[in-house]
Design a protein around this nucleic acid. Structure first.
Lengths: 198, 198, 198, 198
DNA sequence: GATGAATGAGGATTCATTCAT
DNA sequence: CATGAATGAATCCTCATTCAT
């Protein structure tokens, strides 16, 4: 990689980091391309060297948003389905909390918006698929009975996760995602799938 | 009421109805005051006779959004807690579905936004309180045990409701709110609170 | 006068009084017809029963502004020119102060504006004429020499008066009109015309 | 300076010059940003590249308004106080006349308005201070007696200057600033301060 | 005389995006 | 790659004024 390419990458990253910070601070409402470039110390036009549209950078940030979880989960080696799901929940919400409530807000707004073509609408299908996979694997591994309503459980759990994010935002931070997630995992998860445990 | 006042009310309602339709069709993104007044067949300024700010009409629409449920629920006479909750869920999501996915989107965006002072931020507390009340009443009526973790259950159920809306929007309508809500009520509700039933 | 006519006059006066108060409080910038009618407890349209244009009421108020002085001065019976001028100054600025700085501001803005056809542009000529008259009378009465440069003195004195108002507004009230007017009268008036005194 | 920067400056200046002309012609009343940009041959948005608010350009024009006098005066080398004041008056009013009556009107409106935060409210204090300085220096230089009422004289003279502007505007141009200023200087200045001359 | 709903011209401002340098 | 001047569509909102009731 030439020096020039390295610098370009650095500029790009600077834009992303800056945007992330601005999002954390003020949310998306008061975020203009000029804000980003000013805070990044580059010219307005530079933004468009790296991102065709303003939304693209938010998308990119949101994409990175769950990369970590995916990595974590793919390396998750537990053979206990309850534990696995607990870890999943925990990582998911920790990531959400880490990014802060404003980015969470943006993520929700982005993700529920059908007109936003730049956004990763597969996200929910991805989440859905991943969870379903965990449950299906558990069925295969004889941790869960054959007649486990995987689809339904997946729905309920995903819904709970998305709901926690929404409620967090709605409550303006009062509701603590990780706290309640843990309570949910500890007290209710077993009840939801207990009947199907082998 | 004089004829003039009636006409004024009609104009106001025309604006609301038109806005609701436009929201259902295109969402909020492509919604300008001019769109509304044009479609309503009134002058631009007329809008501001009835609403101080553009957002106010959306707020008003969203407010009316759950009025019906609240009414329904307040008249709910069942003495079976499971049934009560089932009805609650059912009415809640039916209302959501009735208004359509785009208004649901707006409602979520509105309700998660802390800067939007026009919005009824008490909504979630109201929902929370109402549900808690249902559960507490059940405890008092000896339907649920004394040690029922009312707070936790309330959280989980509210989260499920808000999550269903979010997931509906995210899935761009694929996920059917009422369908899945009914499944949830039928198959999982008993599990969540079964242990505490007397 | 019928009862109806009396009420009409009362309404009219209420509008004028209200406007004067609003002007004193906030100046003209934030003054709308609606403000006036709201504060007057009448409907918006009622304003236009009495005033064809919004400016008309300000004009009317400004007109009344100096009526009092004119009356006072016309009854001024002193035969000492210095004293006469002192009284003139004093009354002029007392009236200005009475109405308050915001109305003074409006008056200036109105009076310097050539496009404002509703305004009494004769005001300055009237002031000019009245002062000139005082001086000419003094010449006739052998208080002042025949070769007194009446035109010039009139100019200087009128300019001083208008300047005091302007400086009052510019200084945002720091400069006290009456205080400095009195100083001017006491210490400088004699010097300005002293040479021409007989 | 690069070519681009030069062009930018040219654009900025074009906006200022155009605005000045429009002000001279029609005053501020009929002045919209669109007027300015149309007459300047640039896009509407371009205005906001250089001025954050519409008023800013008027302010800037008004600021430049007296720069020249200040320069002139600061280089004034006379040691005769009467002459110095005469020059001061002369330059002041020549500048006023040069800019034209409409800009003078704008300047007055701006300068008497307390809510206009964009405006140089120090202007009058600056004028006041500068004149006081001239008089104080004269005292120090033994041109004026020690007991000269500097404050009072300053007030009267400043008031005369501001009054001349106001009267010019009020008279709609009939009153010629420089003509009368010169008369004032020639015939009355000596009388005002004559007593204190050494 | 009084009302107040309706009007609609008018104006300021924002900002994503382009492109010549 | 980087710049930043220029663009101009888009949009909210104000408010004096009219007029049917």
């Amino acid at each position: 990689m030439t020096k020039r390419q390295q610098n370009a990458l650095k500029t790009r990253q600077k834009l992303i980091d800056t945007t992330e910070n601005l999002l954390k601070k003020d949310g998306f409402n008061a975020l203009s391309v000029e804000d980003i470039t000013n805070a990044s110390g580059v010219a307005k036009g530079t933004f468009y060297v790296y991102f065709k549209h303003k939304e693209d950078i938010v998308t990119e940030i949101c994409r990175g948003y769950f990369k970590q979880i995916e990595n974590d989960l793919s390396q998750m080696k537990s053979d206990n389905i309850i534990e696995k799901l607990t870890i999943y929940f925990d990582h998911f919400m920790k990531a959400v909390e880490l990014y802060g409530i404003n980015i969470c807000r943006e993520w929700i707004k982005d993700v529920i918006d059908p007109q936003n073509e730049n956004v990763d609408h597969g996200k929910w299908q991805y989440d859905f698929g991943m969870l379903k996979n965990i449950l299906n694997t558990a069925v295969k591994n004889n941790e869960l009975k054959e007649d486990t309503p995987v689809e339904l459980l997946t729905h309920i759990i995903i819904t709970q996760l998305y709901g926690m994010m929404t409620v967090w935002c709605v409550s303006d931070g009062v509701f603590e995602p990780t706290e309640w997630t843990q309570k949910f995992s500890r007290f209710q998860l077993k009840r939801l799938i207990g009947e199907y445990l082998i």
